[in-house]
Design a binder for these strands. Structure first.
Length: 259
DNA sequence: ATGCCTGTCTGGGACAGA
């Protein structure tokens, strides 16, 4: 069972690349972020023609998350967190696929920092941590996949260099403390567990030639509860996707869970 | 301090992204 997370940066502009990647990488489950389109304009037919059922939580122009499942329809559990206001940003959707719980997460960027956007990021993170705790102890696999907008450490395995990023919301101690609390509660970072100490970047800014320089950072993550971690077989990043024409600025991260 | 690039809203240029 291959489960992937891909920030597409606009599903309409990215549809050809998305379909190529689905055909080539053939994930059983694909969690998408930054759809940048409303519920009504999600390209459901093209996704279905590619062999995937889907649930999605869109928003006009910004944000937006989806869960795709090959050969089956995910069953939506919730969109947003319990207690969210009705106009909350579209950053969380959760579904069951073959008895497994899967969430697609688009955690707020939080820049500029400090400021209200950073406060919103930290508050959203708290809601995620609280909700994740209600899922963690299930005896069936749970996967929280998405763009967390967190660079976990300053190490080269997580970021090419911190020089241009020391004030960025993705590297702040408060951001990392929230990430650490989530993991310490009992979630396994699939990609880092399979590839300890190795650069596994998932994002390269469009600016400043950062892809050709491999000036990337690791911000897309797949977190596993103990039932899923017990089945962890493999994980990685589909880097080649970032090198395509009209690519997203993110590459898909993925994990494989055995039977 | 700003622009560097890209997508989305629009139908030019602002905003958001990270």
């Amino acid at each position: 069972m291959r489960i992937a997370s891909f920030n597409v940066n606009g599903i309409k502009a990215r549809l050809p690349r998305l379909l190529e990647w689905l055909a080539g990488s053939a994930p059983d489950i694909a969690c998408l972020q930054e759809l940048k389109t409303s519920d009504e304009t999600f390209p459901e037919a093209a996704i279905r023609d590619a062999g995937y059922g889907a649930v999605w939580h869109g928003q006009k122009g910004f944000n937006g998350v989806a869960i795709l499942a090959r050969g089956t329809d995910p069953t939506e559990i919730r969109r947003g967190f319990p207690g969210d206001l009705p106009d909350a940003q579209s950053r969380y959707i959760e579904a069951t696929v073959d008895g497994m719980v899967v969430a697609s997460i688009y955690l707020p960027n939080g820049n500029p920092q400090p400021g209200p956007k950073f406060d919103y990021k930290l508050a959203w993170f708290e809601s995620l941590i609280e909700h994740a705790e209600s899922l963690r102890s299930r005896d069936t696999p749970v996967v929280l996949a998405g763009d967390y907008n967190v660079v976990p450490t300053d190490e080269v395995c997580d970021i090419y260099s911190t020089r241009s990023w020391t004030k960025d919301a993705l590297l702040q101690p408060e951001t990392r403390a929230a990430w650490r609390r989530l993991l310490d509660a009992g979630w396994t970072d699939a990609v880092r567990t399979i590839h300890p100490g190795v650069p596994m970047y998932t994002f390269w800014d469009y600016l400043r030639n950062r892809w050709p320089r491999d000036a990337g950072m690791r911000i897309d993550h797949l977190l596993l509860n103990s039932a899923a971690a017990a089945r962890l077989v493999d994980a990685g990043v589909d880097r080649d996707v970032r090198g395509c024409e009209r690519a997203s600025d993110h590459a898909p991260a993925w994990t494989v869970l055995g039977a």
